[in-house]
């Protein structure tokens, strides 16, 4: 067992964990972040994506002990001041989800892409989605949601 400290969505906890325990399991069961989902457990579908020190990472192929001292954000931490993140809102507006199982992973993987301040083509948007699998939507709605969220960001920036 190892002693680690994780800060998850702003909450810091000291934990004693087995070295082999996956970050996803610790986030789910120690922090109650059940929006972190296992889709494949081999790093191929993106369902489990979280932010580790601001970067999208796959929590199903990371050990919690590797993240000792780091700051982690999950889908539960995305709303700010009670309002959904613009990408979350755009997912609803563009019907970018059906069963919704993969949705937290998509949002965590793509929020930084939306926020980086560029104006991507649809091909670039699709390439940015390449690490995430959605089995329901056929992806069109997700492309539209990213496009909408980028438009919203530009509108806010220009205000």
């Amino acid at each position: 067992m190892m002693q680690i400290t994780l800060t998850v969505n702003g909450v810091t906890k000291a934990l004693t964990v087995e070295p082999r325990r996956l970050l996803a399991d610790v986030l789910r069961h120690e922090f109650g972040c059940y929006g972190v989902r296992f889709g494949c457990s081999h790093g191929a579908c993106g369902c489990c994506t979280v932010h580790v020190d601001g970067q999208p990472r796959l929590s199903c192929i990371a050990f919690a002990v590797q993240c000792d001292g780091m700051s982690i954000a999950t889908i539960e931490g995305m709303p700010k001041d009670g309002a959904l993140h613009p990408l979350q809102q755009a997912f609803i507006a563009e019907h970018a989800l059906q069963c919704g199982y993969c949705t937290p992973g998509f949002i965590m993987a793509l929020a930084p892409f939306v926020e980086r301040g560029t104006d991507p083509t649809d091909t670039e948007i699709r390439d940015a989605m390449s690490g995430n699998i959605c089995r329901c939507t056929g992806y069109d709605g997700i492309v539209a949601a990213i496009r909408r969220a980028i438009g919203e960001r530009k509108r806010v920036d220009s205000d």
Partner: peptide, 21 residues
């Protein structure tokens, strides 16, 4: 009509079998 089920699904509040302890 936008989906009534979506707010819980985009915010990680949905609960699946694996989330039940």
């Amino acid at each position: 009509i936008l989906r009534l089920e979506d707010p819980r699904l985009v915010s990680g509040q949905a609960r699946h079998v694996d989330d039940l302890v």
